[in-house]
Amino acid sequence: MAWVKIIHILCVMGWMTSIFAVPRAIIYWKRDFAKTGENGPLGDLTYRLYRFSFGLGIIAIVTGAWYGTWLGWPAWLHLKVALVILLAAHYLYTGKLVKRAQRGEFRESDMFLRIFNEVSVFGAIAILWVVVVKPF
Rank of each mutant, 00 (worst) to 15 (best):
M1F: 10
M1T: 10
A2N: 11
K5I: 11
K5G: 04
I6R: 09
I6H: 15
I6D: 12
V12E: 04
M13F: 10
G14V: 01
G14T: 03
T17Y: 12
T17I: 10
T17L: 13
I19G: 14
I19L: 15
F20K: 03
A21N: 02
V22P: 03
A25W: 06
Y28Q: 11
Y28W: 12
D32M: 08
F33H: 15
A34Y: 00
A34T: 06
T36L: 04
T36S: 15
G37C: 07
E38S: 10
N39S: 15
P41G: 11
L42V: 13
G43R: 09
G43M: 05
G43D: 11
D44T: 13
T46W: 02
T46K: 05
Y50P: 09
R51N: 07
F54V: 10
F54C: 08
L56V: 01
I59W: 05
A60E: 07
A60H: 04
A60M: 09
I61M: 14
V62A: 15
T63K: 03
G64M: 08
G64H: 05
A65I: 15
W66I: 15
Y67Q: 10
G72L: 07
W73S: 06
W73Q: 02
W73R: 05
W76A: 06
L79R: 13
L83K: 03
V84P: 02
I85R: 05
I85Y: 07
L86D: 01
L87Q: 12
A89N: 03
A89S: 12
H90L: 09
H90G: 08
T94P: 05
G95H: 05
G95R: 04
K96N: 09
K99G: 00
R100W: 02
R100L: 13
R100I: 00
R103K: 15
R103Y: 03
G104V: 01
G104D: 06
G104P: 04
R107H: 08
R107I: 02
S109W: 06
S109G: 15
D110N: 11
D110Q: 13
F112N: 08
E118T: 10
V121G: 06
A124T: 14
I127P: 11
I127R: 01
V131C: 07
V132P: 03
V132A: 13
V133R: 10
